Simulated assay, not measured.
Amino acid sequence: MGAAIAARAQPDGYTFFVGGAHHAIAPSFYKGLTYDIEKDFVPVTLIAQPPQIIVAAPTAPFNDLKGLIAQARSQPGKLNFGSAGNGTSHHLAGELFKLQAGVDIAHVPYTGAGPMLLALMGSQVDLAFDGLGSSAQHIRGGKIKPLAVAASQRSSAFPDVPTAAEAGLPGYEVSTWYAMWAPKGTPQPIVERMYAEVQKALGSPEIKKVWLSNGSEVPRYTSAEFGKYLHEEVQRWAKVSRDAGIKAD
């Protein structure tokens, strides 16, 4: 709803829109959207780019990614993963994992990341694909088991957790990113001014400390680079949706 309202706002520099990775998923998952994330907005900048992390329940019988994949292959359909709901980045990350690992794992959607994590901590589901920021405190508290970070490099917040490639699944990279857009038609000088102000804020020691403590790198994309990244994400998740055969409820 927020995106639809922002898309219809006057492009006078008084309205900006902050969204995330789910807006790259929505075009291929939901029919009848009243906005186009690429055509109705001007990309301003990425704000945060925390990687997703594959986490397991405390009682899960596997402690690493190879163990998870081996069990999933030996017992197709027996394991399950929780998500924050159908069509969320958590859900699509799980579907991408299934496609790349060649495994059959049942999807259990919850009504948000909070209920999903509670179910995981209570061993009501076997694993989850979550943004590192929301899982961080539970990993540190020993309430869930980290298996692998879905990034090209290890997280500075959890240097002992291997990347998916190191753990046995090369090419598996997913980010729960957040970004800012302006309505289409917003004057370029205003977009450039907002970009500069956001970059200044992201460069502050306070923001860097908070971002890094939650496993998020501080992104350094120009507006044009973010636009290219967004397009690639839209195309990527459209393919995953098609290949996995998933649809909205």
Rank of each mutant, 00 (worst) to 15 (best):
A7N: 14
A7F: 15
A9H: 11
D12N: 13
Y14V: 01
F17D: 14
G19T: 11
G19M: 07
G20A: 08
A21M: 13
A21F: 08
H22I: 11
I25R: 04
A26E: 14
L33K: 00
L33P: 00
T34L: 04
I37C: 05
F41M: 05
T45S: 14
T45K: 10
I47L: 13
Q49Y: 15
I54T: 14
A56E: 05
A56F: 08
A57M: 11
T59S: 13
A60Q: 10
P61E: 13
F62M: 10
L65K: 11
L68E: 01
I69K: 03
A70M: 05
A70I: 03
S74G: 15
S74Y: 15
G77F: 02
G77W: 04
K78M: 12
N80S: 09
F81L: 03
F81H: 09
G82Q: 00
S83M: 10
G85T: 13
G85M: 13
N86I: 09
G87L: 09
H91E: 14
G94T: 02
E95N: 14
L96N: 07
K98W: 07
L99C: 09
A101G: 09
H107R: 04
V108C: 02
P109M: 04
G112L: 11
A113H: 10
P115K: 11
M116K: 03
M121N: 07
Q124L: 12
G131A: 00
G133R: 00
G133M: 00
S135P: 07
A136S: 05
A136L: 08
R140T: 10
A148E: 06
A148D: 06
A151P: 02
Q153P: 04
S156A: 06
A157I: 06
A157Q: 09
P159E: 15
D160Y: 02
D160L: 05
V161C: 02
V161S: 00
V161E: 00
T163H: 08
T163G: 09
A164W: 05
A164Q: 08
A164S: 15
E166A: 14
Y172G: 03
V174E: 15
T176W: 07
W177F: 11
M180K: 12
A182E: 07
T186P: 04
P189H: 07
V191L: 12
V191I: 14
M194F: 14
Y195M: 06
Y195A: 06
Y195R: 10
K200I: 07
L202E: 12
L202C: 11
P205M: 09
L212T: 14
G215C: 03
G215F: 02
G215P: 02
P219W: 05
S223V: 13
Y229R: 08
Y229Q: 08
Y229G: 00
H231W: 00
E232P: 01
V234M: 10
Q235F: 03
Q235M: 09
V240A: 02
V240P: 00
S241M: 06
D243M: 14
